[in-house]
Design a protein around this nucleic acid. Structure first.
Length: 131
RNA sequence: ACUGCAGGCCGCGCUAUCGAUCCCAAACUUUCAGGUUGGGGUAGGAAAGUCCGGACAGCACAGGGCAGCGCAUCCCGCUAACGGCGGGACAUUCCGGCGGCAGAGCCGGGAUCGAGACAGUGCCACAGAAAAUUGGAGCCUGAGCUCCGGGGGCAACCCCGAAGCGUGUGUCCGCCCGCCUUCGUCCGCCCACAGGCGUACUGCGGCGGGGAGACAGGGUAAUCGUGAAAAUGUGGGGUAAGAGCCCACGGCGUUGCAUCGGAAGGUGCUUCGCGGGUAAACCUUGCGCGCUGAAAUGCCAUGUAUAGGAACAACCUGAGGCGGCUCGCUUCAUUCUCCGCAAGGGGAAGUGUUCCAGGGUAGGCAGCUUGAGGCGGCCAGUAAUGGACGUCCCAGAUAAAUGAUAGCGCUCUGACCUGCCUGCGCCCCGGCAAAGGCAGACAGAGACAGAAUCCGGCUUACAGGCCUGCAGUAUUU
RNA sequence: GCCGUUGUAGCUCAGGGGUAGAGCACUUCCUUGGUAAGGAAGAGGUCGUGAGUUCAAUUCUCAUCAACGGCU
């Protein structure tokens, strides 16, 4: 498997799963990113599924929303392997959702830093869940 | 060369690393399927707005009426179709140039939701007499009514006064009778008054004309501060005053004829008329329009209520009428006919059994990308566009791919720096130099914007660049 | 993706061709020992934006921008 790949199976796509995550999941914020997460212990297929979004209120143009989501996805893709290893070791299934909450178009550096920090935080959270 | 207008076109590139998705191939694990490796493809001119027109799909469809919606100069053409596009013309209007005293006219370019205001209805604030068969002021007329007196002066004229309007306007003359009556006035007498008597004066009275005035009535539409707009303009005649009332020359519309044009329409003569504007007010005329939309539609998986469909069975919706009465025809009522209304047409209806399906769930497949397709030159055409030929397959996602980072290049911009060229000017005459051009360095910027069934248009957004045509300005030849 | 509605004062809304209004809020004054209530006066508008029709547009037409709602 590619170390930095992000195939469709690692994306959170089911409408039901997303609704459940927003209803029953936990969240924390590393500005300008808001992260929702939910963990299932002892899952048959351990792994991660992630989704990315931003508000239509803050970005009117579809072109700008696409840009924000691409940056989020790219930052996640490049920094996730560490977390993924930890998750596989503890036999967890994690559902993540990254929401961009700022109103101005960001640079890649800002996104990269925020996502990296939130992923380290997530690793701590997964550790708590496993024990 | 610059500026302006109109039209058309392009709308960043390359490399490396790490990814996403679709297609093809290979081997691997293997139940479907999945990942791995290799190769190839992957956003626009507007993908946007969703304003028109279609393709495609489902449903509906006896034939009309009303309503509703849309279109609107003429001719020809293009297109699958259009409210779109191309060419030419007409009308209105704007701009520039020529022309010229001013104009007429000519040339070039732009804009136009450009049918109808002699079918009807409505509206036109404020102001103004009046906003569409109007009548205030003014002007003219006017039967009858009121008034036109006195004084000075030779006279011209001056002064005071009538009616009336209103605060200074406006103010007569002729004739007849000068007779009759004694109406009027003055004086005297009788007398409380009424009345009577006497005397004198005036010219009373009648007729005709003129002037002034108020008002009933009538005529008139030339003038009237307005207003966006005031009833065809100018001149003459005409009249009590006036008026297209009449005439001449015009303006606008219209009838007919002639002529030019294929037509809209133009020109000339002629007939009749001259009651404004507004139809992006209602409306009228002509033409066109079934409805819903890929979340359409078909299929698979899951499948418990029993709303639905089909087949079969027998009693076949309810009420009424007719006949040849176990049956048939017909009327009314309820319901459906998938945007409205009324009529009308068509179909169906209750019960049981069996089968299909099915409240829900929100997964998958097809539709889904080969098409009014792209590219290339050729041919036809002024062009829109069409034709044949060759060649290519060129996005297909679905919490939604087409990207991220770094470097190099390209284009544009510059209160800066360096070099070179031209050299307005200054002076010590070979130096300094405004402004401009070229090259380099540095810095900044690279717009508008992201497919969602697919096409044709329209509209809107857009850094920068390129091309074509026309006009103007300057310079050179 | 498709369909529709609404933009008027700080807020909530009228006005549907002829000088832009109401309620609340705001400012000043009166009243009160003071505040509220009450009374009097006042200020505040590119009628979302741009074109057009008209003598005249908040109103009619077209385009555009924004907000909101519905279909599933």
């Amino acid at each position: 498997m590619k170390r930095f790949g992000l195939p469709a199976t690692e994306k959170l796509k089911s409408r039901k799963a997303i609704d459940a995550l927003f209803r029953g999941g936990q969240r924390f914020s590393v500005f300008p990113v808001l992260v929702w997460h939910r963990w299932t212990a002892g899952a048959a297929e351990p792994g991660l599924q992630a989704g990315f979004t931003c508000s239509k209120k803050h970005f009117k143009r579809a072109h700008d929303r696409n840009r924000v989501k691409r940056l989020l996805r790219e930052a996640y893709r490049l920094q996730k392997p560490e977390l993924l290893e930890a998750v596989h070791g503890r036999e967890l299934h994690g559902e993540l959702f990254f929401v961009f909450v700022d109103k101005t178009l960001p640079t890649f550096a800002v996104i990269h830093a925020a996502v990296g920090k939130s992923l380290r935080h997530l690793q701590k959270k997964s550790h708590e869940v496993a024990h």
